[in-house]
Design a protein around this nucleic acid. Structure first.
Lengths: 107, 107
DNA sequence: TTATTGTATGACTATATAGTCATATATACC
DNA sequence: GGTATATATGACTATATAGTCATACAATAA
């Protein structure tokens, strides 16, 4: 459980960053090359490349070469399930906090 | 979706770290005070306290005071679902990599 | 009031991370 | 061969993070 905790953390880290989340979202529709990804998420090519490499190294993206282009795809359906569940948490938190504000407003 | 991406990343970051994962695992059985948590996960009290505060601030832990003791609990069931799915990814990756090694070994 | 216990935090260090710019490398095309 | 396009990476900066130690603070007990 201990050495696995590190791998587990690495997998989660591969999703726990704004730019990487944008990449994951864009890859919902399937495999895309770097040249499609970086303009879509509005990030520099080099920065996008680094994040893609990071995610692939940590096992959440697959990488396929076709000529000059490199195609990346989300490798495990669990990645989307994780993002969806995190989104549910965020929604509930936002809801809850706005309720608190309403209660405070009413005095 | 953009400002939300930051919140989303923060929620995932609250799980994407070895010490925090140990805390989450320990809290599977429910609410626990700091004095129970830090010996269980074998971390310093101060470090544990910081991580607990971080997770609570980012909305994945609840905090309850009872006398001198502070009780923390995982606030959303999705947290465990996320950890479980990340574990499934790790398992599959480990499997896959050991298969690769076997293939390579056989020449 | 003083001592004890449980938790949080200031100050600090070491390391990791995200991002940028320039450039290297690889494939394809002429 | 030379040129264009796609991707990766070295070198760097700024910031964030995890951890430690000492100490502050809060609640309770004596």
């Amino acid at each position: 459980m201990n050495s696995n905790t590190t791998y587990l953390a690495d997998v989660l880290k591969s999703m726990a960053q704004a730019t990487r989340l944008k990449i994951i979202e864009f890859l919902r529709d399937g495999e895309r090359c770097v040249c499609e990804i970086f303009p879509a998420i509005d990030e520099e090519q080099s920065n996008t490349s680094r994040h893609l490499a990071y995610m692939q190294t940590h096992g959440i993206l697959s990488r396929r070469k076709d000529g000059v282009k490199i195609y990346y795809a989300v490798k495990h359906p669990e990645v989307f399930e994780i993002v969806d569940r995190a989104t549910a948490i965020v929604r509930r938190e936002v809801e809850q906090r706005s309720e608190m504000i309403n209660l405070a407003g009413r005095g």
